[in-house]
Amino acid sequence: MTEYKLVVVGAGGVGKSALTIQLIQNHFVDEYDPTIEDSYRKQVVIDGETCLLDILDTAGQEEYSAMRDQYMRTGEGFLCVFAINNTKSFEDIHHYREQIKRVKDSEDVPMVLVGNKCDLPSRTVDTKQAQDLARSYGIPFIETSAKTRQGVDDAFYTLVREIRKHKEKMSKDGKKKKKKSKTKCVIM
């Protein structure tokens, strides 16, 4: 069974824990209790493949930012979460993405942009803004509501699919490099 290491990042209060708990335990946590770091595991079937999701729910508070490099190193894919009623959390996505790329030393890291709290009427981040940002990053965008469960499975499952595509691409690139290195030079 394939294991996928997913990391949920975003500013404090955007609903990272609520999304994760909704996926794992099928219930909505409405009281806000700032996370330092929590880890969850769940076995699911995605596109006919049974897999184990190892999900790291991270601290959004700035005082825990020193811990970010460590979990970013171990993560295979990242859910970059903002709240649709919090423009600052949307603007912060850029910083999370840049930090992930720096730590992973790669421009090509599996990510999904997630606009959470889409059940709320007080939207300050337009869907088109988020779609445009995701398009500019070359990553999928999904709106979710941890409260109603809308888009929750889709967000995590899409990230797994992005990781699969990335692994497939990397193995193809690896095979191309191996083929090239088999060419021999004969000096007579």
Results as ranks from 00 to 15, higher is better:
69 D>Y: 03
100 I>W: 06
66 A>I: 08
64 Y>E: 13
96 Y>W: 12
88 K>A: 10
124 T>I: 09
119 D>E: 11
97 R>Y: 15
97 R>H: 12
104 K>E: 03
68 R>T: 14
108 D>V: 05
119 D>N: 06
72 M>I: 11
82 F>G: 14
116 N>M: 15
82 F>E: 01
114 V>W: 00
84 I>L: 15
100 I>S: 02
114 V>P: 00
84 I>F: 13
73 R>K: 09
94 H>Q: 12
105 D>R: 07
75 G>I: 13
107 E>H: 07
80 C>H: 03
84 I>V: 13
98 E>L: 02
76 E>W: 14
74 T>C: 11
118 C>D: 09
77 G>W: 01
104 K>D: 03
111 M>H: 01
119 D>Q: 04
116 N>E: 08
63 E>I: 02
107 E>N: 07
72 M>H: 07
120 L>T: 09
112 V>M: 04
114 V>T: 01
97 R>G: 06
99 Q>R: 07
77 G>I: 12
112 V>S: 00
80 C>K: 01
124 T>C: 11
78 F>I: 08
68 R>N: 15
83 A>P: 14
125 V>Y: 12
109 V>N: 01
64 Y>R: 09
103 V>E: 11
100 I>R: 01
100 I>K: 01
94 H>N: 15
109 V>M: 05
98 E>P: 01
73 R>Y: 09
122 S>W: 07
75 G>D: 03
113 L>R: 00
78 F>L: 05
83 A>Q: 14
77 G>A: 14
104 K>L: 13
81 V>I: 07
82 F>P: 00
63 E>L: 02
98 E>A: 04
83 A>N: 15
116 N>P: 00
116 N>W: 00
121 P>K: 11
103 V>L: 14
106 S>G: 13
65 S>A: 07
83 A>R: 04
67 M>H: 10
126 D>Q: 06
122 S>N: 13
104 K>C: 15
77 G>E: 00
110 P>Y: 01
108 D>N: 06
72 M>G: 06
71 Y>M: 14
115 G>C: 11
103 V>Y: 13
74 T>S: 12
124 T>P: 09
108 D>K: 04
65 S>C: 08
97 R>D: 03
80 C>I: 14
79 L>T: 00
113 L>W: 11
125 V>M: 12
112 V>F: 03
101 K>W: 04
104 K>V: 12
84 I>G: 15
105 D>H: 07
123 R>I: 09
120 L>V: 11
108 D>R: 05
68 R>V: 11
115 G>T: 05
97 R>F: 15
106 S>V: 11
121 P>G: 13
116 N>Q: 15
124 T>E: 13
104 K>R: 13
66 A>G: 12
116 N>S: 13
71 Y>S: 14
65 S>G: 11
80 C>T: 03
67 M>W: 07
74 T>Q: 14
68 R>K: 13
87 T>G: 09
110 P>G: 01
122 S>D: 14
93 I>K: 00
113 L>P: 01
121 P>M: 12
122 S>P: 10
80 C>P: 01
126 D>W: 05
121 P>S: 12
104 K>Y: 14
123 R>W: 07
75 G>S: 11
114 V>E: 00
83 A>V: 02
120 L>F: 11
74 T>I: 07
117 K>F: 15
114 V>I: 12
119 D>W: 02
81 V>A: 05
63 E>H: 08
